[in-house]
């Protein structure tokens, strides 16, 4: 096992990852859940980016005679993953807005209570116009 301080980037990643994951699981507020999810995803991006970094190294693409290589590929991959993450957050926020319109709340507990009330078999929520969020 090498020196702990040499691996500090992984410690940062793991801390962020666990913090984000905990927020997703523990928080009942949908927006906070999304914040946790973004943090969780961002930690993975930092993991990838730190993978490709070599101190003093550059990518041997435009310059000749580079002897200290840094790998540019993880950075390119993470550009794609960031786009995916932004799209996920956007869809998630849009859904949160729709949930707020339909339920009047963005707390998971409230939504579950409202759903349980609607589960009464004699009620048919799809027929009632006020249930339609649009």
């Amino acid at each position: 096992m090498s020196n702990v301080s040499d691996l500090f980037n992984y410690w940062v990643v793991v801390f962020l990852m666990m913090a984000g994951f905990y927020v997703v699981i523990a928080q009942g507020n949908l927006i906070k859940k999304l914040i946790g999810l973004s943090l969780f995803q961002a930690s993975v991006f930092i993991f990838y980016i730190s993978l490709g970094f070599v101190e003093g190294g550059i990518a041997p693409i435009l310059e000749e005679g580079v002897s200290n290589y840094a790998n540019p590929l993880p950075h390119v991959l993470i550009l794609t993953a960031i786009v995916v993450s932004v799209a996920t957050t956007a869809v998630g926020l849009a859904l949160a807005v729709r949930i707020h319109e339909a339920y009047g709340s963005i707390e998971e507990d409230d939504i579950q209570t409202l759903d349980l009330e609607a589960d009464d078999p004699d009620e048919a929520p799809s027929d009632k116009p006020e249930d339609s969020p649009r």
């Binding site: 997703v24 969780f40 996920t88 859904l95 949930i99 799809s126 339609s132």
Partner: peptide, 18 residues
């Protein structure tokens, strides 16, 4: 059409993204 569709979609979004 059911409003539960939206909360189901959100739940799926969180678990799917994880």
């Amino acid at each position: 059409r059911d409003r539960r569709a939206v909360s189901a979609a959100f739940q799926y979004l969180v678990m799917g993204s994880i």
